[in-house]
Design a protein around this nucleic acid. Sequence first.
DNA 1: GAAACACTTCCATGTTCATCGAAATATGGA
DNA 2: TCCATATTTCGATGAACATGGAAGTGTTTC
Lengths: 233, 233
Amino acid sequence: MAINSNVSLIASLISEPSRAAILSVLMDGRMHTATELAAKARIKPQTASFHLAKMIEAQALTVQQQGRHRYYGIHNPEVAHVMESLLSITPLTPIKSLNQATEDQAIRRARTCYDHLAGNLGVRLTESLRNQLIVEEVGKEYVVTQKGEAFFANLNIDLAQVRTKRRAFCLQCLDWSERRYHLAGAVGHALLERLLELQWIERLPKTRAIRITPDGLIGFKDTFSIELTETTT
Amino acid sequence: MAINSNVSLIASLISEPSRAAILSVLMDGRMHTATELAAKARIKPQTASFHLAKMIEAQALTVQQQGRHRYYGIHNPEVAHVMESLLSITPLTPIKSLNQATEDQAIRRARTCYDHLAGNLGVRLTESLRNQLIVEEVGKEYVVTQKGEAFFANLNIDLAQVRTKRRAFCLQCLDWSERRYHLAGAVGHALLERLLELQWIERLPKTRAIRITPDGLIGFKDTFSIELTETTT
DNA sequence: GAAACACTTCCATGTTCATCGAAATATGGA
DNA sequence: TCCATATTTCGATGAACATGGAAGTGTTTC
């Protein structure tokens, strides 16, 4: 069956640890240069170039050239979705170094899962939304309640506009680090963007971990009834 | 990052054409013997044994022994979901033989997508449900309308019971052969089971293609307003 | 225009892995 | 008990692929 050989071709893109590392970095939803990706994947630039070309050819990534720099990004949400699917069934392994433990901890605490919030923060936000009856769980989806419509309006998130997007509206996404669900889909994306606007969270330069700001600590406590502690970094 | 090496490990299970072929066969939702899977994947039994052992160890498959036969099946819906994700972004390739063309055609016409109906039949059923306002499209999900509640009740599908299942309720699944959406999730599963009960469709012995029965032709016309033609097989 | 930087291409090397023939083991039927 | 079938194990083989050193190309800075 011709279909199988193509499925294996796509899967083979991710099966190589170096390419998986590159894709993982790009799951922060941003564009990165070839040199950055080489460093993050701990391979030489020529090896990175080889892998990047392969993923460009397979249309898993896109590239934009600006002067001497080539910026690489994930081609479309479908590719990110495949990565998320794989991450959701991937077993965890023990940590091997202190530095790695620190980064892993930051990643577990709060991170982007391509275009929505994940990690302990993502999971606790989702639980708060459920506990306050802002969303209700139906199977593996969430339905926004009447109270939720008001809640998001107060947060300045226009749900009517969110509903027009051609994507899952309000899903559960299995958080591989917490082994519980966080909120994904169009609502998850809108929430992430709004929290960045409010500057309750901020992106960090070299990682897809997310930092919670002092304003965020207050905002999450007041709005979501979540007590968080700031990291000592 | 330790996570990446595990993502690549999982992806490597599917990256091998033989294992992809085995998984594809098992996407019919049934259990198959090692000898059957070897034949379908066009490899020797010892090669199949090697691959099956690998996928058992990785908990992608399960095995049940009955006498001299070993029956293999997909371990859980999460694994099937990963396969579906990969299939949804896999480009199609040209057909290489007439026999393959015939089977491909049957697969395109109607098949199981692990636990729901896919192919041209799946897509047309979904379109009919939308056109008759039985379901409404919200992003990449479907919401069952008031009229839909009655429709499914008439078809003897208990939606209240379906809603209790711990899975996506009513999703779009991108049909790789039609390049349009068919209905998946718990409702998709319930619909497949009901159509089998009604004997409007039936499973075929050696393929995940689905056959439409003469009763089915009448039922789909009366209930879904779909004109289908029976294949000459 | 030269130097530095970002990135790619070429080539050799080493590693990994899928494959099957042959043989062995386990189970069922006559 | 013997034979057939299903499946697994062992070992050898060949192919595929990731890697980095060296060199080359394109762009930016001085």
